[in-house]
Amino acid sequence: MVSKAMSTRTEVAMASVDVALPASESIAAPTAERGLVEECRRGDPNAFSRLVALHEGLVYNLAARMLGDPEEAKDVSQDVFLQVYRMLPRFEGRSSLKTWIYRIVVNQCRNRQRWWRRRRRDKALPLEELTASESVQLAAPPAEGPEQKVARREESRRVQGALLKLSLDHRAVLLLREVEELSGAEIAEALGVAEGTVKSRLARARDALRQALVAREGNPS
């Protein structure tokens, strides 16, 4: 298995990353997903690049929302796909590839936060600056005037700030449910907990977000 993984690594590394995705290809199609995984396992030089191109948006968005720092999100996204690349031969397909990747993202974010906390620098992160950062682009920004743009950015900043008041577990469950629109079972797979735990955690997380937003708007400073 190791030698297979090594040969796959070589071939993928030599492959070009400029992969054009067919318009009909989507992440949700389970057969296409299975085929992509199989191609990656067989060492198809373009398959892994396609896999990254398909999932990098959702991985980056989730990491950025969870950590609140665009640079950290970039690093986490890279680490996630490197881990996917190394672990792909061991992926058994019991859950969907997307759920498996979400699980890796959440774990990487958790590790990253632990790492920062150990160095007592978690408070130094520019958490609320995420939406104002020039290095982050809002995907497909709608046509709008300057005032609307400022208002939208301010709204994003408020919601992101409230989100970051929550614990990492609450952030993960909320984002997976409300933003990524996963089902309870999928979230349970992604977080590695029981479905009942997801429900109770989701209820607490929703209430915590409500309180954070109410408190924030009661005290805008």
Binding site: Y60, N61, R65, V136, L138
Partner: peptide
């Protein structure tokens, strides 16, 4: 309603 964030640099 939060907009989806995209990295300007290619992760791939």
């Amino acid at each position: 309603a939060l907009p989806r964030l995209a990295c300007e640099e290619s992760i791939a």
